[in-house]
């Protein structure tokens, strides 16, 4: 249902969400200030060290989530090979891995409702102007909730395709995939309405 969750409970789960998000912002800022290959490598090593702290299960789950980055890393790698800017390329790749790695850590160790709480607090000035921020808070929860469902839908569609075809599913599953997504959106909207929707 949700991809960025932790398989084990870590000590970081008990830290306040605003603190974690602030630390993440500072760390990411520093990552972009640093312009040294070795320091960047050290930053990535520290990130990986953090992943290793809660144990092997957590480490593996965390690394699996970083794998989605590989297409970007390949594109960056190819570009910097072609332009012969090796050191710059290596730095950018390390920075990307470290920054996304840290962000993943925060998401994995923070409950969704805590995250929403922070957003609610950040949106306080908007509420002063009479804007309805509950919709914004819920929208973020819903995106996080629906993404893994979309992935499941895709897997199910391609399974259904392969069950009756020797060829790989191609562009032709795009339309049914879109329809399924719309269908899911309908169901979710109804689930929300059943429990009050955007009542403030």
């Amino acid at each position: 249902m949700i991809s960025l969750t932790s398989p084990v409970r870590t000590r970081a789960h008990d830290w306040p969400a605003p603190f974690k998000l602030f630390a993440l912002a500072v760390a990411t800022f520093v990552l972009f200030l640093v312009n040294d290959l070795w320091l960047m490598g050290a930053a990535l090593a520290v990130t990986l060290g953090l992943y290793a702290l809660p144990g092997a299960v957590f480490f593996k789950a965390g690394i699996r989530r970083l794998k989605v980055l590989w297409p970007f890393l390949v594109i960056l790698g190819v570009w910097h090979l072609v332009t012969a800017t090796y050191e710059e390329g290596a730095q950018i790749i390390l920075r990307l891995l470290a920054a996304v790695g840290l962000a993943n850590l925060v998401t994995m160790t923070t409950a969704l409702n805590e995250m929403i709480e922070v957003i609610r607090w950040l949106a306080t000035p908007l509420r002063r102007f009479g804007l309805h921020t509950r919709a914004l808070e819920l929208a973020i929860a819903l995106v996080i909730r629906i993404l893994p469902t979309l992935v499941d839908n895709g897997t199910r569609l391609s399974d259904a395709w392969r069950a009756r075809s020797r060829r790989r599913p191609g562009w032709r599953v795009v339309v049914p995939f879109t329809l399924l997504a719309l269908d899911d959106a309908d169901h979710l909207a109804e689930a929300l309405r059943a429990r009050g929707g955007f009542l403030e």
């Binding site: 969704l112 409702n113 689930a191 059943a194 429990r195 009050g196 009542l199």
Partner: peptide
């Protein structure tokens, strides 16, 4: 009157996947 509805009526959908909004 959705506000009143919250206390009056609850519904259990056929498919729990269609009802559950949150991850935990």
């Amino acid at each position: 009157d959705r506000r009143a509805a919250m206390g009056e009526v609850g519904i259990l959908f056929q498919n729990p996947e269609h009802q559950i909004i949150f991850p935990t």
